[in-house]
């Protein structure tokens, strides 16, 4: 039984596969959660009270409960309603997308609302329809404003993917913990897990800082 960093080196392919899945989950979730967040944001701004209430309830539910619980809950509640037993990865993705969409919807909603009424009026005064004002005037400005918040959500999401390990999805955390249980080697494996997450996460955190500085909103 080898120990120390040679063990890490021997399992480099498994660590790499886990890290890759972590990244894939992050990217895929965000790709789905941006339109998801937009849809929820518009539903929350809808004219009909029932629609607004339903969307708000969904968003508040996923923002006020732990993600780890949401993942378990989706895993066990889906079969009750849909007769399908989804594989772990799909369940994890579903949970993550519902969660991140909810946070994004708040970001988008705040961004849209923050564009001053005067901008709306200027567009309407030119004869545009509501939809045209939204598409050409409000959304482009809102996009600049939401970028810093989206960047922060991205890094949170990257960290949250570690939670999918609890339903045995082969992300970086699960791979590391599995190797630990198989080999009984604790310290180097846990250090390696922390180090790999840090190596991936630290640059992202710095990038988010840069985005916040660059896209600071000046009223």
């Amino acid at each position: 039984m080898t120990s120390g960093w040679s063990l890490i080196w021997e399992n480099a392919d498994r660590f790499a596969a886990g890290a890759l899945l972590t990244v894939e989950l992050t990217v895929l979730t965000m790709i789905l959660a941006i339109p998801g967040g937009l849809v929820l944001a518009f539903l929350r701004l809808s004219r009909w009270r029932v629609v607004r209430f339903a969307a708000t309830a969904f968003v508040e539910l996923f923002r006020s409960t732990p993600l780890i619980l949401q993942i378990y809950w989706v895993y066990y509640i889906l079969p009750v309603f849909t007769e399908i037993r989804l594989p772990g990865l799909a369940v994890a993705l579903t949970g993550l997308v519902c969660n991140i969409s909810s946070y994004n919807s708040e970001t988008f909603r705040a961004g849209i609302v923050s564009i001053r009424r005067g901008q709306w009026n200027a567009g309407l005064a030119l004869g545009m329809t509501n939809a045209q004002v939204m598409l050409r005037i409000v959304l482009p400005q809102a996009a600049m404003r939401v970028l810093p918040a989206l960047a922060s959500t991205w890094v949170s999401l990257f960290k949250d993917t570690a939670l999918v390990s609890v339903i045995h999805v082969n992300d970086l955390a699960y791979v590391a913990l599995k190797i630990r249980t198989e080999t009984f080697v604790i310290l180097p494996v846990l250090n390696a897990m922390a180090l790999f997450y840090w190596l991936m996460g630290y640059p992202q955190a710095k990038l988010v800082d840069w985005i916040h500085r660059r896209y600071k909103v000046a009223e």
Binding site: A162, L163, L187, L190, M193, Y197, G201
Partner: peptide, 22 residues
């Protein structure tokens, strides 16, 4: 910035299992 990069899960597991060994 390091705490912003590390998942809570990783910090928890490391504190409970790895810290005592050090």
């Amino acid at each position: 910035d390091s705490m912003r990069s590390l998942p809570q899960l990783v910090v928890l597991v490391w504190t409970f299992f790895a810290f005592p060994l050090i």
